[in-house]
Design a protein around this nucleic acid. Structure first.
Lengths: 344, 344
DNA sequence: TTGAAAGCGCTACCAG
DNA sequence: CTGGTAGCGCTTTCAA
């Protein structure tokens, strides 16, 4: 546990020069810097975090609030936490984990004790209690997700509406007249912010294109095979030829299984697009066109925004929507002219 | 952002009295304490974290290393992270998250900068790189899991060997002569520390009881239905009447499905016990006897050990194995006398 | 380009 | 039971 004065002595310079050499906030001659760096390595010097926090204006820590509710999709959430951690570390920041210990109390605690420089909010609910807190707190807070009431907040997320709309548009372009959305488990439409956004985008674009549109969930609380199968079956029975799926990998497998068991093939008989998937839609059988949800992208932007909020000219509050990217894998085909059409 | 001197002034006492009143490290008269508490509330005072870390000997932060590898079972890992977080908070500690590429470097970084008081290690591999680091570092490190080489380390975990042995013993007691273990995906036997421990306990106890014992995995990389089904089928074909399952909820459902489709009933024809399950085995159909893995228990002990390691008389390094608890739900029955037995 | 020194806000020792 | 105060190890202003 060498201290800065030992480094200074070893390098034959003053304490302040060591500090500046390490922070780069003041020019230091190449020769001096070399000596200091050697001393640092020699003594295995690491600046004391507490002293830094006290003397400096930064703690180099962001809080990450992630309730870890039991009903959420664990793999997706883990991806976001990991992506946030990587993005933070790349900017020399650590993450302090705040779980459901009263997410609000944790936030105000770390904010008012000066433990963290900013807060990243994950697993955002449509009506999220952390929204009110973010407004009250005096450190930058970035939401990864968009709550219903986001006035004055900084939010980052995939543009789910646009993603769903893009999928519908592709189907419409391919001639499909009747499309269906297999969504998340029903409860997610209350607990999470993005499933409703996908649904809105889907409905709006279907309307825009004059398509017949229907919706089914993939379960009530968690994805379940029965509900997903039945929902898919109902849509196919109703003459849907284009499916947009916003569901877990397991649920999508059920959708594909149902399609397969009916002897329908993709894309000849039915077209399928996965939206906001955080798994690899290319490894499904058959590989599906998809518009992926990339945690890394959201988290990179979020960390960047948090960092910029600490600088002199903080960016104004706003919702950063990440443009959807469509990946073609051959699961969308032109609609086959059906008997109704020729009969007319 | 009120400071301690403002509180002191407001309460009409000295700074040190405020400090002692809040820490409880020195007796303070009831009346004085009341005035101080009033001032604290009034000014919304929260001690500055950096100053505390610098002046005091504690940071009130533990690091949590959790690689978040892609091939792990996310729900279980999330449970552990959550349990660790809750245990830490209950002791007024926060958790700093260290993820993958950070695991080794991150540990030494936070240790030598004095950012954290101790480290909790999750997702322990049999040959874990963090073991060497833990020995080098000068702050307490607690492993939640037991690496192969755990000499001199503090480890906490469910006694997986004993859990598996207990399950086998129950089957033996019920008269089963041939038992099978449906385990984790194959890769977990290299990447994680506990699957091999379950298998060892299973084999040892079967040997001890003179039972015929067989083993199958539930997949190669992730649990998969096909492998699980086939493994179950093979065991049943081989005359196994007692199944010990150490697998994910989805995999167990496949096991039960295979048993059901063969027209076998539980426990009349086949007995099934789930070991080290971190989901609710009571909600399966039929409800299964199980020996649960309770993240909360491991994490409570781990935090407690970390805390005690900071005190004057730190406990000696040791492996704390948590005794397995058997929950009966009627999925184990006496073995039916088969033709071979009566023929003798 | 470098150095000296004044804090940052708290804890804990030494007095009383 | 309470107060005064010397640091904790760094960052940053002011001087040179």
């Amino acid at each position: 546990m060498a201290k800065i004065d030992e480094v200074a002595k070893a390098a034959g310079v003053s304490i302040s020069t060591v500090s500046y050499a390490l922070s780069g906030k003041r020019p230091v001659s190449a020769e001096t810097r070399t000596r200091i760096e050697a001393a640092v390595l020699e003594l295995d010097y690491h600046p004391n975090a507490g002293a830094r926090m006290l003397a400096g204006s930064r703690t180099n820590i962001f809080a990450l609030t992630e309730p870890f509710r039991g009903d959420t999709h664990a793999p997706t959430h883990m991806s976001f936490v990991l992506a946030a951690s990587i993005a933070a570390r790349r900017n020399d920041y650590d993450l302090l984990l705040l779980t459901q210990e009263d997410s609000s109390r944790g936030m105000s605690r770390v904010a008012s004790s000066g433990l963290v420089d900013g807060i990243l909010v994950l697993d955002v609910a449509p009506a999220d209690e952390r929204v009110a807190l973010a407004r009250r707190i005096d450190i930058p807070t970035v939401f990864i997700g968009v709550p219903d009431d986001h006035e004055g907040l900084v939010c980052v997320d995939l543009d789910f509406e646009a993603a769903a709309a893009l999928a519908v548009q592709r189907l419409a372009d391919a001639g499909h007249r009747s499309v269906g959305l297999i969504g998340q488990p029903a409860i997610a439409y209350d607990n999470s912010n993005f499933p409703p956004r996908v649904r809105r985008g889907f409905d709006a674009q279907a309307d825009e294109c004059g398509l017949d549109a229907q919706f089914r969930t993939s379960g009530s609380v968690r994805p379940d095979a029965i509900t997903t199968r039945r929902g898919t079956a109902e849509l196919l029975d109703a003459g849907v030829t284009g499916l947009v799926v916003h569901a877990s990998e397991e649920a999508i497998r059920e959708v594909l299984a149902e399609v397969g068991e009916r002897g329908l093939s993709i894309p000849a008989d039915v077209s399928v697009i996965s939206v906001a998937s955080s798994f690899d839609a290319a490894s499904l059988a058959p590989p599906l066109d998809d518009i992926p949800l990339i945690p890394q992208r959201s988290c990179d932007v979020a960390v960047d925004l948090a960092l910029r909020a600490l600088e002199a000219n903080p960016p104004a509050p706003s919702v950063h929507l990440i443009a959807p990217e469509y990946h073609s894998r051959g699961s969308v085909g032109s609609v086959r002219e059906g008997p109704e059409d020729t009969a007319r």
